[in-house]
Amino acid sequence: MAATCSVRLLRWVTVAGLVVDAYVHAHLAGAYDPVRATVSQGTLFRAEAAAAALAALLLVVAGRRRLVWAYALVVSAAGLAAVLLYRYVDVGAWGPFPNMYEPAWFTEKTVSAVGEAVSTVGAALGLLVLPRSRRGSPQL
């Protein structure tokens, strides 16, 4: 029963972080449309918002599946890695992606990074404590 409560708590903490991530990226996307190469930064923000929203929805609907938790972890960790990379490193434009270097923290960026960090930790812990199926194979 304690494991069930832990998984449930981790699920809702992870969902909350993903929802924050999705909201902030969707909210800011229009402001970043002018930053473009082949693909605009606004488009990338919309893709992140959609991926985070899907991960949150999947956790709500199918939060007992390890594959869902793994997807949530990948989305969260990739978002957090991107914001940290482009905050501290001037990668420049590469391939179809614009130069997204932005060496400053502001409220929305900080809120998004916190949401991504929370959901990354929540998803990683969720994968660790999620019970395996009784048949001996992991739940997918």
Rank of each mutant, 00 (worst) to 15 (best):
residue 116 E to G: 01
residue 21 D to F: 15
residue 127 L to T: 01
residue 117 A to G: 14
residue 115 G to Y: 00
residue 35 V to M: 10
residue 124 A to D: 01
residue 91 V to W: 10
residue 121 V to Q: 06
residue 3 A to Y: 10
residue 50 A to M: 05
residue 4 T to A: 15
residue 44 L to K: 02
residue 56 A to I: 09
residue 95 G to S: 04
residue 50 A to W: 01
residue 103 P to D: 11
residue 67 L to S: 14
residue 75 V to R: 04
residue 78 A to P: 08
residue 104 A to S: 13
residue 40 S to T: 12
residue 56 A to D: 11
residue 15 V to M: 02
residue 6 S to D: 10
residue 19 V to I: 12
residue 70 A to W: 08
residue 129 V to W: 08
residue 25 H to E: 03
residue 88 Y to R: 09
residue 125 L to N: 01
residue 53 A to N: 03
residue 23 Y to A: 05
residue 98 P to H: 06
residue 106 F to S: 10
residue 128 L to T: 04
residue 112 S to T: 05
residue 7 V to Y: 11
residue 59 L to T: 05
residue 30 G to F: 05
residue 35 V to P: 04
residue 73 L to N: 02
residue 83 V to D: 12
residue 85 L to E: 12
residue 87 R to C: 03
residue 29 A to W: 11
residue 136 G to N: 01
residue 34 P to S: 09
residue 52 A to K: 02
residue 93 A to T: 10
residue 40 S to E: 03
residue 49 A to M: 00
residue 133 S to A: 07
residue 121 V to M: 09
residue 34 P to V: 02
residue 3 A to P: 00
residue 132 R to F: 00
residue 108 E to M: 04
residue 71 Y to T: 08
residue 125 L to I: 04
residue 105 W to A: 06
residue 70 A to Q: 13
residue 90 D to A: 13
residue 78 A to H: 09
residue 4 T to Y: 14
residue 3 A to M: 13
residue 82 A to Q: 10
residue 16 A to K: 08
residue 14 T to D: 09
residue 77 A to N: 05
residue 9 L to V: 13
residue 8 R to H: 11
residue 92 G to R: 11
residue 108 E to H: 13
residue 110 T to A: 12
residue 27 H to S: 13
